[in-house]
Nucleic acid binder design. Structure first.
Lengths: 153, 153
DNA sequence: TGCGATTTAATCGTGTGCGATTTATATTCT
DNA sequence: AGAATATAAATCGCACACGATTAAATCGCA
C-alpha cells in the first residue's frame, strides 16, 4: 500500500516534527545566549543586529536598514529612537529627499564596535560545532527564508 | 601566512555572515508565511504552536508546556488566558497539587485540529524544498539550539 | 503647471518574549 | 507540628514584530 507520511496529513504531528519550531526555539536560544554578552554593552539582541548592519555600512536610510534586517519602519523607528537615546546613532532627514531618514553612527557608536568584537567568538564557542557545519546549516536556513519570502506576494 | 577567518575577529562582518541572523530572519519569514493560514482559524503563530503541543498531548501543566515550547509562565500565562477566552482550552488547578495548572482542550479546541490539518502541507509547498533537505536543515538547527542551551547554565 | 499617485517614515494597537519579583502551595527537616 | 526551603504560576515592565493607518514629501503625467 502507498505510504503517506504524516507530514502530509497534518495529523499526529508533534512540535519536534516542525521545521518552523526548530527555528522558533533556536531563535529564542540565540537571544538568550547573546543576552549576557550584550548586557555588558547595553544593547538588546535586535539592537545589536542593527548595529552590525550600521558597522558594515554607515549612513543608511530606514528603508535600506529594513531591507537588510527584513523589518519595516513600524519596528525600526522605535528601535532607532532608543539607539539615538543611547548615543550610538543620530537620525537626520536627507536634505535631498526629506522623506528619507539617514541613520549615522556617532563616535560612541563606532567605538562600540570594538567593545563588541569578542562576541562572535563567544557565540561560536557556545555553539561548539565546526565552522563547516555551521556554514551548511546557515545556507540551508537562508534558503528556507528566501523560499518563504519569494512565495509570499 | 596563517589564515584567520574574519568570524574570529568580530570585525568586518556583515549580517549575512551571522548564523543567528539567518535564524532570526527565517523566524520572521515563517511567522509571515503562517499568518494568512492562521488568520482563517483566528490563531497567532505562537498560539498555533501551543495548540500543536496540546493536540499532541492534552492536559499538560504550564510547566510541561513550557518545557515543550522552551517558554516560561511569564509568556505562557497570558497566551493561555487568550486561548481560554477564544474557547479552545480550559485552565484548572490540579486538585492533587494546587500549585499546578492543568491545561485541557475543549471540544472546540479539538475540532480546531481538523481545520488546521491542511496548514503543514501549505507551508511545505511554500518551502518548495525536498523533505530530505528540510529534515537535514531541521536537525542542524535543533543541534544548534541544544548546544546553546546546554552551554548556558 | 497642477494634481493624483507613489514613496518614506511615523503612529497606533495587539500579542508575544523575558528578566525580575510576588503569591500561593507543597515539601523537608529537625 | 512548625519554620525554612522549594516549586508552580502569575504579575509587572520593557522591547520587539507587525498589520493597518496616517502624514509628509516627491514624482509623473496630462
Amino acid at each position: 500500500m502507498a505510504e503517506r507520511p504524516e507530514v502530509m496529513t497534518g495529523d499526529g504531528l508533534a512540535l519536534g516534527d516542525f521545521l518552523c519550531f526548530s527555528i522558533y526555539s533556536a531563535g529564542h536560544a540565540f537571544n538568550q545566549a547573546y543576552r549576557p554578552l550584550l548586557d555588558e554593552i547595553g544593547l538588546t539582541y535586535p539592537q545589536y543586529l542593527l548595529m552590525v548592519a550600521l558597522w558594515s555600512k554607515d549612513e543608511q536610510t530606514v528603508k535600506a536598514l529594513g531591507q537588510a534586517l527584513y523589518l519595516e519602519s513600524n519596528t525600526l523607528t522605535p528601535m532607532l529612537k532608543r539607539l539615538e537615546g543611547l548615543g550610538y546613532i543620530v537620525r537626520a532627514r536627507d536634505p535631498e529627499d526629506e522623506r528619507q531618514l539617514r541613520v549615522c553612527l556617532t563616535d560612541q557608536g563606532r567605538a562600540l564596535r570594538a567593545r563588541a568584537a569578542a562576541i562572535p567568538a563567544c557565540i561560536l564557542d557556545a555553539l561548539g560545532l565546526p565552522l563547516d557545519d555551521l556554514k551548511k546549516i546557515q545556507d540551508g536556513i537562508s534558503a528556507v527564508r528566501d523560499h518563504l519570502l519569494a512565495h509570499k506576494p
